Simulated scan of single mutants.
Amino acid sequence: MLTVLFFIIVGFYLFGLLGRLFLNYWIRKKQREFAEGGGGFSRTYMWGTGFGRSSRPKPEGDVTVRQTASAQKKVNRNVGDYVDYEEVKEEAN
């Protein structure tokens, strides 16, 4: 019984040690990929331009504001009338 318990404890210890080493290797590999500029992605994103569009990058600190489509309510006028209800309390006789 103690032998089985010993091997279970050693197994968990080795699993944790190997898991930590593998995770460290994987993180460093991903850091190198991102530092090289690819990151393994086929598309790149530049703020303000969207995915895949090729445009000149703007100088750092340059701010541009683009107006988006106006958000007007699109309500069919033939739907009906708007009725505002008000609570009325009646006195008990």
Rank of each mutant, 00 (worst) to 15 (best):
F6G: 09
G52L: 03
L2S: 12
Y13W: 12
V65Y: 02
R66V: 04
E87N: 10
T3L: 02
G50D: 11
G16K: 04
M1W: 05
G11R: 12
K89H: 05
R56H: 13
K74Q: 01
G80E: 01
P57E: 15
T3R: 03
L23K: 01
F15P: 00
G19R: 04
Y25T: 07
G80D: 05
V10C: 02
R56Q: 04
L18F: 01
F34K: 02
V75N: 08
G80Y: 00
S42E: 12
D62F: 15
F12L: 12
F7C: 10
D84N: 14
F41R: 14
R32M: 04
L14N: 02
L18K: 02
V63P: 04
K58L: 01
G80F: 00
L17C: 03
E87D: 10
G11P: 00
L21S: 11
V65T: 13
L17G: 09
V65L: 11
S42K: 13
G39K: 04
K89Y: 13
G48N: 08
E87R: 14
A92D: 01
R32S: 07
G80S: 00
W47R: 15
M1E: 13
P57S: 11
Y85N: 11
N76I: 01
K30T: 08
T44W: 10
A69C: 06
K29P: 02
Q31P: 14
P59W: 14
L18Y: 00
G11D: 13
R66D: 04
G61V: 15
G52Y: 00
F12Q: 14
S42H: 14
E87G: 03
Q67G: 09
S70V: 09
N78S: 03
K30W: 10
T3W: 03
V88M: 06
K73C: 02
F6L: 06
G40M: 10
V88F: 08
V75R: 06
F6R: 12
R28Q: 05
M1R: 06
R20V: 09
W47Q: 15
G48E: 11
S54F: 11
A69K: 04
V75Q: 12
D81I: 00
L21C: 11
G38C: 09
S55T: 13
G61Q: 12
R28P: 00
F22S: 08
T3A: 06
V65G: 00
K58M: 03
V65A: 12
K74W: 01
V10Y: 10
S54T: 14
E87F: 06
A69V: 11
Y82A: 11
V65R: 11
L23H: 06
F7M: 04
K89Q: 11
L14R: 08
F51E: 10
R20Q: 06
T44M: 11
K58Y: 02
Q72L: 05
G38W: 06
E87A: 03
R56D: 06
G50P: 09
R56F: 00
E87Q: 13
P57G: 08
F41D: 12
N78Q: 08
K29G: 06
V83P: 05
F51C: 14
G11H: 07
P57T: 11
V10W: 15
L14M: 04
E33G: 06
K74A: 05
A92E: 02
G19E: 09
P57L: 13
F22K: 03
G38V: 07
Y82D: 03
L14S: 02
Y25E: 03
E91H: 00
L23I: 12
G39R: 03
P59T: 02
E91G: 01
K58N: 01
N78I: 07
E90H: 03
